[in-house]
């Protein structure tokens, strides 16, 4: 390679690394605001003020969903497995909303309860056919069955 070309290549290399470092650092500094949502643990730690409009994200706790009979009102608990947060919501839930599923909710914290104005479902990265899922579930049941049988016997 000719010397003046090598020099040019070095200059470009320097500019590119410099920019990469600068952008990397500023993104790192911004990383809290780039996050789409707060977790229940962050809410519990008091990182958010009452009445501030935010998004929260977590898993819908198993057995926590209570749907109203006559209206669209629904209450459930989101969890990140270390802290829980009660959510209240009036509106249509996305197709994927169910217990054990990730959700992102928009709204504000009011006396320790999250008043949601919108609830989105978070899809996980697992794809499974209906049959495979059914087979997995029945295998799971079969494994837990003997335990229940001995408990029932006592």
């Amino acid at each position: 390679m000719k010397p003046h070309r090598r020099k040019k290549l070095t200059i470009i290399g320097f500019i590119a690394t410099g920019l990469a470092v600068a952008i990397g650092l500023s993104l790192y500094a911004l990383s809290n605001t780039i996050d789409l949502f707060f977790t229940p643990s962050q809410i519990a730690a008091g990182e958010v003020n009452n009445g501030q409009r935010i998004r929260i994200g977590g898993m819908v706790k198993e057995g926590s969903v209570v749907k109203s009979q006559e209206s669209l009102h629904v209450e459930f608990i989101t969890t990140d497995y270390s802290h829980d947060l009660q959510v209240r919501y009036d509106g249509i839930l996305p197709d994927l909303f169910r217990e054990g599923q990730g959700v992102v909710a928009e709204g504000m914290v009011n006396n320790g309860v999250f008043e949601a104005s919108r609830v989105l479902a978070k899809h996980d990265e697992n794809y499974m056919s209906v049959e495979v899922k059914a087979a997995l579930d029945s295998a799971e049941r079969a494994r837990s069955m003997p335990v229940m049988a001995t408990e029932g016997g006592q």
Binding site: L36, L120, H123, D124, E125, N126
Partner: peptide
């Protein structure tokens, strides 16, 4: 991976014939 997002992370597909994915 760096931030929490609505978009799911990349899937880990498996070579195994009997794996769910």
């Amino acid at each position: 991976e760096w931030w929490n997002t609505l978009h799911q992370p990349a899937s880990n597909f498996s070579m195994a014939e009997d794996s769910p994915m």
